[in-house]
Nucleic acid binder design. Structure first.
Length: 468
DNA sequence: CGAGGAGCGA
DNA sequence: ACGTCGCTCCTCGA
């Protein structure tokens, strides 16, 4: 069967749950879909045109055999293998963590009821609104459909003056970890003690994969309970290890590559600390770059990729909007090639109505010529961000295909078991780890033609400990 | 069962 | 108005 056909089939399958014991069964199942139906065409178009309004523009359909189709179809069996293999998780430990968290939130609930003087459910936004704004008459903030927001930004503000807000925040953090991760993941453990997620190839407008039932791409990271939860993901076999490989600064490096900005490329080339490097130009009079300056520069570096506004940046770094706007301007002054790249990209998009990448991903962007500045700026953010995110997603997909081929050719027992956007996770016998590291590094670092993207690799006994 | 609110990751 | 995307949890009312 031609590869292009494989792609259509995978797209048709994307709405159904893929739980398969091996690729043979998977192949048989996709044959059933292959014969039919409109869903194939529909899903296929969806993969290319996230903007549904343009789905009828048939003449814009990519020709069979193009690079995106080839990549997606080569990725398909790799994903099938990962899903079928699954990830081993420690059920007992997840259960223990869940019980601990349940105990913690129960205690907090009692403490809060004691403080307020009447029972209420802190999981209910409506009841929290009542307690804070009606009963305690605390000044409210953001307006939402159902009254006033009680989200974490609001509660953090209120928490400066009222202990109850901090207790609710703490309660929520335990409940999130308990319900979604400790107990949520526990429910997903199947026979063999493994969790089998489903990777969706056509869910996002940015070319990324998504992961569902369960979502393994938003497992919490950090110290304490998040680390304990991540630590539950570990090999079932004695003597096996995890190997975690993640791209360092992939989007910023891709922006450097796409824009050919000399300063940005040079900073990366010299192996500089890119955030400290940017900080030098945001704070030209500073003798030394402080931690705080680096933090601000880091936020600017990331923010530029997403088209952050002065206002948005000011909220994140806690300065005035004017000051934040100045930092963004300083970034574009220093990295003027990025500005030029964005300008050229937008100029072309305004004329053609779409943005595209070298590989052939395309997206129509509405609003680039709108008279409303908000709509126009929003469209420009979308247009400038898209090629960077797309390219990053394609790099990882290409790396996955390449790694899978090399593992097969090298007759490795080790296998790829997870993808978290810029991170790939493997498990295998400890004896294979040194060779596995070399293989994975080579495949990942060379996945963007013409530019070597550095990768951080670490091994460990579980997902939490395998970090540099 | 779906909408709304909230929060997790990249 | 203020960055974006996608997934899942809980509550609440139809």
């Amino acid at each position: 069967m031609p590869k292009f056909q494989d792609l259509k089939i995978s797209l048709a399958l994307s709405d159904s749950k893929r739980k398969i014991s091996d690729f043979r069964e998977y192949a048989e199942r996709i044959h059933e879909y292959a014969a039919s139906d409109d869903a194939v065409t529909e899903a296929f178009e969806r993969a290319y045109f996230a903007d549904k309004d343009f789905r009828d523009e048939k003449e814009m359909l990519p020709p069979p055999g193009d690079a995106v189709a080839a990549l997606e179809s080569e990725l398909l069996p790799v994903l099938a293998q990962m899903e079928a293999t699954g990830v081993h998780a420690d059920a007992k430990e997840l259960r223990d963590i869940g019980e601990e968290l349940r105990e913690k939130s129960k205690n907090l609930e009692l403490e809060m009821i004691d403080l307020i003087g009447e029972p209420f459910n802190p999981n209910s936004a409506k009841q929290v609104q009542y307690v804070l704004f009606d009963k305690l008459k605390i000044p409210s903030g953001k307006k939402i459909k159902t009254g006033f927001s009680v989200d974490s930004d609001t509660l953090e503000e209120i928490g400066k003056n009222y202990a109850i807000a901090n207790l609710i925040l703490e309660y929520r953090s335990y409940e999130k970890l308990r319900a979604t991760y400790a107990e949520g993941l526990l429910k997903e453990i199947g026979e063999g003690g493994r969790i089998h997620t489903t990777y969706n190839q056509v869910a996002t407008s940015t070319g990324r994969l998504s992961s569902e039932s369960p979502n393994l791409q938003n497992v919490p990271s950090g110290e304490g309970y998040p680390a304990r939860i991540k630590g539950c993901f570990r090999p079932a076999e004695a003597g096996w290890k995890y190997l975690v490989a993640d791209y360092s600064q992939i989007e910023l490096r891709i922006l450097a590559h796409l824009s050919s900005d000399g300063a940005l490329l040079n900073a990366f080339e010299l192996g500089r600390d890119i955030h400290a490097e940017t900080a030098k130009f945001l704070f030209p009079t500073a003798k030394e770059i402080s931690k705080d300056m680096r933090r601000i520069a880091k936020t600017v570096n990331f923010g530029v990729i997403y088209g952050i506004t002065g206002f948005g940046l000011s909220k994140t770094i806690g300065t005035s909007p004017a000051e934040a706007t100045g930092y963004i301007a300083a970034f574009f002054e220093r990295y003027s090639g990025v500005r030029a790249y964005y300008d050229a990209l937008l100029e072309k998009a305004r004329t053609t109505g779409y943005v595209e990448t070298a590989l052939g991903r395309k997206r129509f962007v509405k609003g680039l010529n709108d008279s409303n500045q908000n709509i126009r700026k929003g469209a420009e953010r979308e247009a400038t961000n898209m090629p960077v995110q797309w390219t990053a997603a394609d790099v990882v997909k290409r790396a996955m295909v390449s790694v899978a081929e090399r593992l097969k050719r090298g007759k490795f027992e080790s296998r790829m078991i997870m993808q978290v956007h810029d991170e790939l996770v493997f498990e295998g016998p400890e004896s294979e780890m040194p060779d596995l590291e070399i293989l994975v590094r080579e495949a990942m670092e060379t996945a963007l033609p013409g530019y070597r993207l550095p990768v951080d690799i670490a091994t460990g006994s579980n997902w939490a400990s395998a970090k540099g």
